[in-house]
Simulated scan of single mutants.
Amino acid sequence: MEKLIDNPTIPNSNYSSMIDLLSHKAMIHPEKVVYTFLSNDNQDETDITYQELHMYAQQIAAYLQHLGLEGQRALLMYPSGIDYVKAFLGCIYANVTPVPVYPPGLSRNMERLKAIMDDSATNIILTTTQLHSKISFHFSDELSNMNLKWIPIADISHDYRDQWSQPKVDKESLAFLQYTSGSTSSPKGVMVTHGNILHNEAMIKAACQHNEDTVMLGWLPMYHDMGLIGNILQPLYLGAKCVFMSPMDF
């Protein structure tokens, strides 16, 4: 895997990590809605505030720490939605490196998933109960010898929230692994640090002249770098709001 290098000519961020960022936003904008997810032909809306997002991240992180997973890597296998964001930030808050992936729907996608799991050296998967059941049923033969650890975040008790211990991370700490599509060869991973994310978000803010009053609309897949960095983490960095939907609904 390669490490992403920042461009020193781009303005940097004052935050020390993504944990520092969300904790601060939750303190100054506790009741502000950060994400609205549209589903079922835009008839249903799900909102989450900065404070709620911070608390969910603590809850998931505390459970991952309880399992002794700090410093390890975990695949995020979700459909587009707020649960994806919760799981991503829960990993960040636990110093567990999230690896965003596309849920397998075809045998080719399963081969891609296996390649990513081998390269990232993980057998831990955060997902939904429904998706776990579906994948286990359709790919029972392929998964039988893989010794996977599935963690549905919806099953994590709220009681864990008070047990969260903030890990020691800074701008040089690994935040997540971003993999290429693997359309012409095996997927290739890039190591993205907290500093890389904050640096990139500062660049997008400066280039697009965004601010906390900006309202963004997105539909790109959340395992995609532009969907994650541009549609999900940019509004979080700004203290703004994003309305998003599934690529399939779009």
Rank of each mutant, 00 (worst) to 15 (best):
N109I: 09
L143F: 10
H132G: 06
W150M: 07
L148H: 04
I116V: 12
S107T: 13
K149R: 09
T129K: 10
K149Q: 08
F137M: 07
D141W: 15
M146K: 13
T127Y: 00
A121G: 09
T122L: 05
I135C: 01
W150P: 06
P104Q: 00
L148W: 05
S107A: 14
T129D: 11
F139S: 02
R112A: 07
T122S: 05
K149L: 08
A115W: 15
G105I: 06
T122G: 05
L148M: 08
I151C: 05
T127F: 01
S140R: 13
I135L: 00
S107L: 08
D141H: 15
E142C: 10
D118M: 13
I153V: 09
H132A: 07
S120D: 09
R108Y: 12
M110G: 12
A121L: 13
I151W: 06
L126H: 02
I124W: 00
I135E: 02
P152K: 11
L148I: 09
I151Q: 03
N147F: 04
N145V: 12
H132N: 06
K114L: 15
S136T: 11
P152S: 06
I116L: 02
K134V: 03
A115V: 09
I135G: 01
N147P: 04
N123A: 08
M110T: 12
P152W: 10
S140V: 14
G105T: 05
H138Q: 08
M146Y: 10
F139I: 09
T129F: 11
L113G: 04
E142H: 10
R108L: 12
D141F: 14
L126G: 02
F139V: 04
N123G: 09
E111G: 15
A115S: 12
I125Y: 00
D141G: 08
I153M: 07
K134T: 06
F137A: 03
L106G: 06
K149M: 08
T129I: 14
